[in-house]
C-alpha cells in the first residue's frame, strides 16, 4: 500500500529540524539552550554589577584576580587585593567600574571555543545540525569552521590563559582558609576549593591540553621524555573522556561560587566557619 505523503528520493524529509526520528531528540538541545542561556545571563549581570564580589576571606572567581578595585562599591575588594591599585581614571564612563570586565573575557573565550561547547551550541543555538540525522538550518554556502569561524582556533591561546587562571584561583582558594592571619575553614573555603578542582578537571581534560601534553607525538615510546608524556596523555585522556561532565559541573559551580560570595557579602546568608 502506498503512503499518501510525498517524500524526496530516499524518503527523507527536507528542511530545518526535519527528520523521521521518533525519539525525543529535541530534549538535549533544549536543555543545553536553557542551561547556557541561564549561565550567560547570570554571568553577564554579575560581571556588570561590580559589587558584592568580596567578603573576607572569599573572592568571587568572576573577579579573580582583581586588577583594579573601585573601593567605594559595596562588597568590593580592598585596595591591598588589587594588582594595580585603585580604579583607573581612563576607564570609559559608559562602562560600569567592574573588575570582572577585565577577567571574564578570558574564561569566556576558553569556554566558547572549547570543543565540547562547540558541539553544544552548534546544536542548540545554530542548528547545524540540531541533532544527528535531523535537518540542519539551511545555508547558502556552509563553511564550517573556515572563513570567519576560523577564530575557533583561538582555543589554543585561550588555554594558555585558562591555565594561568587556575593558578590564580588556586591561590584564592588557599587564602580562603585564612582570615586575619588565622587558619580556619568556612563553607566558602570549601566552595572555592571545589571550584578550583572542577575547573582544573575541565581545563586539564581539554582537547587542546590533551594534545599538548602528549597527543601531538607520533611515537610514545621513542625516548624517556615521550614515554613520560604518554603516561600524562593517558591520565588526561581519562579526564577528556568526561569532558562534557566537567564542562557542566565547572560551569555550574563557578556561577554558584560567585552567587555564594555575593549572598554572604549582601548579608542574605551567613557563612558557617570556624572563625566565628
Amino acid at each position: 500500500m502506498s503512503d499518501a505523503t510525498t517524500y524526496a528520493v530516499g524518503g527523507h524529509r527536507e528542511g530545518f529540524a526535519a527528520t523521521l526520528r521518533e525519539d525525543n531528540w529535541w530534549i538535549g538541545p533544549v536543555l543545553t539552550l536553557v542551561g547556557l542561556l541561564a549561565f550567560v545571563i547570570y554571568a553577564t549581570w554579575a560581571a556588570f554589577a561590580g559589587n558584592h564580589y568580596y567578603t573576607a576571606p572569599y573572592l568571587s572567581p568572576f573577579y579573580s584576580p582583581v586588577v583594579f578595585t573601585y573601593t567605594t562599591a559595596p562588597g568590593a575588594a580592598p585596595l591591598a587585593h588589587s594588582w594595580f591599585g585603585a580604579w583607573p581614571a581612563w576607564w570609559p564612563a559608559f562602562l560600569p567600574a567592574s573588575p570582572a570586565l577585565f577577567i571574564l573575557p578570558f574564561p569566556g573565550v576558553f569556554r566558547f571555543t572549547c570543543y565540547y561547547y562547540r558541539k553544544a551550541y552548534y546544536r542548540a543555538f545554530s542548528g547545524t545540525p540540531p541533532a544527528c540525522a535531523v535537518g540542519a538550518l539551511p545555508q547558502k554556502s556552509y563553511k564550517g569552521e573556515t572563513a570567519w569561524m576560523v577564530f575557533q582556533n583561538l582555543h589554543r591561546y585561550a588555554l594558555y590563559f585558562a591555565l594561568l587562571f587556575i593558578a590564580f584561583l588556586t591561590y584564592d582558594a588557599f587564602i580562603s582558609f585564612f582570615k586575619d592571619g588565622k587558619f580556619g575553614v568556612g563553607v566558602g573555603s570549601i566552595v572555592l576549593t571545589l571550584n578550583v578542582v572542577f575547573l582544573t578537571c575541565f581545563t586539564c581534560g581539554c582537547h587542546a591540553f590533551r594534545h599538548l601534553i602528549g597527543g601531538k607525538l607520533d611515537c610514545f615510546t621513542c625516548d624517556a621524555g615521550s614515554a613520560r608524556r604518554h603516561g600524562a596523555w593517558k591520565r588526561v585522556s581519562l579526564l577528556n573522556a568526561r569532558h562534557m561532565v566537567w564542562a557542566w559541573v565547572s560551569l555550574f559551580w563557578v556561577g554558584f561560587s560567585d552567587l555564594y560570595v555575593r549572598l554572604v557579602s549582601l548579608g542574605i546568608i551567613k557563612d558557617l566557619n570556624t572563625w566565628n
Partner: peptide, 11 residues
C-alpha cells in the same frame, strides 16, 4: 580534505 568544515557535532 577540509578538516575546518567539521564543526565537532559528534554525530
Amino acid at each position: 580534505f577540509g578538516v575546518g568544515m567539521c564543526n565537532i557535532t559528534r554525530c
